[in-house]
Each structure stands twice: as structure tokens, then as C-alpha cells.
Design a protein around this nucleic acid. Structure first.
Length: 491
RNA sequence: GGCCCGUUCGUCUAGCGGUUUAGGACACCGCCCUCUCAAGGCGGAGGUCACGGGUUCGAAUCCCGUACGGGCUACCA
């Protein structure tokens, strides 16, 4: 308890490693940190954990920042915005790590290790065969300070290791999500904290930064659970109080395997191109491992800011389900309102397809606002915009194969009868509007003694080129008199 | 090998010892609405709560074990 009731000084951080782009799991971790900070009136820090210079890239950093921005997860401190605890790149915090190492040396909590990689591998294998823990056997821990210094001075390569206290006993991790976990200290080896090139390892740098940045709650993926007791030892060695921990379970693909490219899009930025709006992805991710009450499925970012809680995070891994994400996306599109849908979804997609100029929206906004709800109600993804209403923006309609076969070729005689009757009826329409068009055409089935569905499908295919479209009369009204008549004549 | 964790309808979940004949959502099926497709409304199917023992008057809920799955076991993060 207490973890969320303390509303004054919560500081959380999302600390991605720019060795890759932001994927769904990372996005959810960022989201939970953000939502928790917002809910508590706390501070959301973005820190770039780039201690692995080999694999970290500027492009990945760019992508991570823009993906977070697209999702609407704004950070209070970090790259681009600065803050009182900077810098926010680990590669720029070397002084802090050096100072922390010195503190640990002074306290006898760190020692040099001269063992070679080969020696270590051999020891590991032997230990594993012996049936026990395979951690470092502490060979160099017994070295006297003098000998250690002498060998270092002689130029022998070494790393710094954490000296796990002999009498430490169990390390208890009190996790908000998982509860208490006990780790026998003898299963925790003396991990490397500073590499032979002088750079800090993740488990060391991360703790030092979390201390220096005043982080109160560490919310991260559960691949870090086993690191946590080691990190706790570093906190203790540095003499600092522990933050609270909350470990999030993994996100799996449909086949219960780790989410990967095989399962489709894994990078956040891909979801924009696929036609999702960020609120929908945020909503879906929020529900993937957390619930408001077990009933509510539409949870807006705003609701998250008001009601998110670490206590309601579930422990078990979740399978990513695209169908549900799509459904949620559809809900957001439908609830958007004509103006917003036109501006955020409809027009951009039409422009991107080269069907209209960006200025066309300004020129006839009302027309677009009429179209918007007809489209938004029928799609789940913005990629469906062009297929559904593209016919309104081309000179001549192109009838798709299925419509040709199932409607036009099925009974050519009926087609010409319907078209002729429709043209005659429409000729009498004075003002070209949805109600007038409807009034002119609604009696046709009866007059022709044909099924309504047959009559209107013929007209629909003539007008839209497809068996599926927005409502017919509205479509014709939006298309305009001349083009509607021309399309009927052309069939 | 060692340490740690997880397991409720196909999927996400509610449930925190009795109010549960296990609730909701997506997906699925049917009906209604209807100019198509959607949306919406109504209804349906779908769970031996991983398995086996205990504790208890009573267990999805507590304990132990087993199975399966996962994480860590790096001079990756």
C-alpha cells in the first residue's frame, strides 16, 4: 500500500536502451510509468540507457523519442526538455559512476578481478556440472589491497566486482506486482560493475542513476526480476534507500512465443502507417496487463491519468491480439466527430493517396464533414478510407471484379432496365440532395417489380464501382449530379 | 544444471474463503434493423478456474508437490 497514495514526490523513469527501436513491450512499460506519474502528480523521467556503445545508435534514439511523442507520452525530464537531474544520457554521466565506484571501494563493497574470460567460462561450466549455482567463485576477492593495486599498476587488465556481503542472507524483493520474492544471497554472484575499459555495466549504472535522479518507483519489464536482488545489493553498498519495484510481465505473440517480426508489426511507428490512432494503441496497451475494473474496455489516456494504479497490474504474460486492437481503433474513429475525423484521418489519407490536394479541405470543409461520419462508421483502420470512398475523387469509376461478376454480368438485361429507370427518375430531381435523390429512387423496386437489394446494388456499382460503399443516396449527393448521371450512363 | 516467476472461456481480463449455476470485453454463431457494408439492439455457443494432494463446515481464491511455459544465470540491457 502507500505506493500510490503518496501523491507528492513520485518520480518514475522509462530508461530504454537505444540498441533497437521502441517496440510494443517497451511502449507499454513507458505507458505504465507515464500513467502512474500522471495519476500521482509525479514526475516522468526519460533516460537513455546507452551504456552499450556498440549497439546504440542516434537513429534509434530519434525513433524512440518520436514514437513516445506520437503515443502522447510526454516526459517531464529528459532529452529535448532537460531537467534538474541531467544529463539524461548514461554516456554523459561517467563522473557519477566513478564517484559511486569510489564510494563502494571505500566501503569495501567493490574489488578488482583479474580473471580472464576463459578462466571464468571454465569455472562456470565446472560449477554448473557440479549442480550448484554457476556464479563467479570470488577468486580475486581474497586478494590483498596491495597485491590488487600492484597488479593493476603493472598493467594487468581487470574489472570491478560487487562484493556481496558474506552474512547477507536472503535478499527480499518486495514487488508491487508480484509480492515478495526471496533470493538466497549465495546464489547471487559478485557481478561485474565496471568493465575493463572503465565503463559501467547496466546493473551498476542503472542503480547509480536511479539514486541520483531520486527515482521512487522502478516500473520495468520482468526480464529484470532476477537483476533486482543484485541491484538491491548495490543500493545497499551505496548506503541508499530502496525504491519500490513493479515488474511487468511480457507481451507474447499469438503463438505464445516472444513477440517478434513474425507476428506482424512490433515497432510502435508502424501502427501509424497501418491506420491506428495513438489513443487506441494506448488504450489497448493499457488493458494488456492492467484493468480498470474488469468491465471497462474503453479507457482513454485521460482516464488513465486519473485512475491508473500499479496494484491492478496482472502478473501473467499477455498475448497481443490484433483483432481487439482493431476493434478499439474503430471505437475511437467512430467517436471522433466529423471535424476531427476529417482532419486527422480522412483528408490525410486522401492526400497521401494523391486523390486530393491538402487545400481542398479548406475549400469545402462542409462537404468533408458530411462525408466523415459515413466513412468513420464503416472502418476500423484508416487504411480503409481510400478503398471505401476513393470513388468520390476520381473522374471515372473503376468497377472491381467481384462487382462486375456478381452484379453487372449476372443479368445485363436487368441492369439496363434499372439504369434507364433510374436516369428517368433522377431527371426530375430539382435540387440535388440526399432526400431528393432518395425520394426519386425509393419507389423503383416497386415500379420495376424487382427486389430493392437488386435495384440498389446495380446503381451502387455504377456509382461507386463496388458492392460495398457508404449509403447510396448520400454518396450520390456528395458525388454531384453530373458525375452521378455520367456514371449511370457509362454502365 | 542453479535461482526466480507465471498458469481463470480461442484472446485480454474480473475474482483477493461463502453474494459465483465463475462476470465483462474482443473474436465466433443466430436473429432484428436495412439500399450494400458497417454501426446499433437482442440472444447463443464457449471455462473439469493447468494437474494432484492437503487446510477448512466451505477453495478459482490459502499451503505443498507435479507438469507445462517464461526470465535470469554476460566485461547485453
Amino acid at each position: 500500500m502507500g505506493s500510490t497514495s503518496q501523491t507528492t514526490s513520485v518520480r518514475v523513469r522509462f530508461a530504454p536502451s537505444p540498441t533497437g527501436t521502441l517496440h510494443l513491450g517497451g511502449a507499454r512499460t513507458a505507458l505504465y510509468n507515464w500513467a502512474f506519474a500522471r495519476r500521482c502528480g509525479g514526475t516522468f523521467v526519460l533516460r537513455i540507457d546507452d551504456t552499450d556503445p556498440e549497439r546504440s545508435t542516434a537513429e534509434n534514439i530519434e525513433q524512440i523519442l518520436s514514437a513516445l511523442t506520437w503515443l502522447g507520452l510526454d516526459w517531464d525530464e529528459g532529452p529535448q526538455v532537460g531537467g534538474a537531474y541531467g544529463p539524461y544520457f548514461q554516456t554523459q554521466r561517467g563522473d557519477n559512476y566513478a564517484r559511486a565506484l569510489q564510494t563502494m571501494i571505500d566501503r569495501g563493497a567493490a574489488y578488482r578481478c583479474f580473471c580472464s574470460a576463459e578462466e571464468l567460462a571454465a569455472k562456470r561450466d565446472a560449477a554448473r556440472k557440479g549442480g550448484g549455482p554457476s556464479g563467479y567463485d570470488r577468486t580475486c576477492r581474497g586478494l590483498s589491497p596491495e597485491e590488487s593495486q600492484a597488479r593493476a599498476d603493472a598493467g594487468e587488465p581487470y574489472v570491478w566486482r560487487l562484493a556481496v556481503p558474506e552474512d547477507r542472507g536472503e535478499v527480499i524483493v518486495d514487488d508491487i506486482v508480484r509480492g515478495q520474492m526471496a533470493f538466497p544471497a549465495d546464489a547471487l554472484d559478485d557481478m561485474v560493475i565496471v568493465r575493463s575499459d572503465g565503463s559501467p555495466t547496466y546493473n551498476f549504472a542503472s542503480v547509480v542513476d536511479d539514486i541520483d535522479m531520486g527515482i521512487t518507483h522502478i516500473i520495468r519489464g520482468d526480464d529484470h526480476v532476477s537483476n533486482t536482488p543484485r541491484q538491491i545489493l548495490v543500493f545497499e553498498a551505496l548506503g541508499d534507500a530502496l525504491p519500490r519495484f513493479a515488474h511487468l510481465s511480457m507481451i507474447w505473440g499469438q503463438d505464445n512465443k516472444k513477440l517478434s517480426k513474425r507476428h506482424g508489426a512490433t515497432g510502435v511507428e508502424e501502427y501509424d502507417a497501418l491506420g491506428y490512432v495513438p489513443e487506441a494503441l494506448v488504450n489497448y496497451l493499457a488493458l494488456l496487463g492492467w484493468s480498470l475494473d474488469g468491465e471497462t474496455t474503453i479507457v482513454s489516456p485521460r482516464t488513465l491519468c486519473e485512475h491508473f494504479s500499479l496494484e491492478r497490474i496482472s502478473k501473467n504474460p499477455a498475448v497481443f491480439d490484433t483483432a481487439k486492437l482493431e476493434w478499439i481503433n474503430g471505437v475511437y474513429l467512430r467517436e471522433m466527430g466529423a471535424e476531427e475525423f476529417a482532419r486527422r484521418g480522412l483528408v490525410p489519407r486522401l492526400v497521401a493517396a494523391g486523390l486530393v490536394d491538402a487545400g481542398d479541405y479548406e475549400a469545402r470543409a462542409d462537404w468533408y464533414h458530411e462525408l466523415a461520419p459515413l466513412v468513420s462508421e464503416r472502418i476500423k483502420l484508416l487504411t480503409e478510407v481510400v478503398p471505401l470512398c476513393g470513388f468520390l475523387f476520381v473522374d471515372a469509376v473503376r468497377v472491381d471484379e467481384k462487382a462486375q461478376a456478381k452484379v453487372l454480368d449476372k443479368d445485363p438485361e436487368a441492369v439496363s432496365v434499372v439504369v434507364a429507370a433510374a436516369l428517368t427518375a433522377l431527371a426530375e430531381v430539382a435540387e440535388w440532395s440526399t432526400p431528393a435523390i432518395e425520394a426519386a429512387l425509393k419507389d423503383l423496386p416497386e415500379v420495376l417489380d424487382m427486389k430493392a437489394r437488386v435495384v440498389f446494388q446495380v446503381i451502387r456499382v455504377a456509382i461507386t464501382g463496388s458492392q460495398v460503399s457508404p449509403p447510396l443516396f448520400e454518396s450520390m449527393a456528395l458525388l454531384g449530379r453530373e458525375r452521378s448521371i455520367a456514371r449511370l450512363q457509362a454502365i
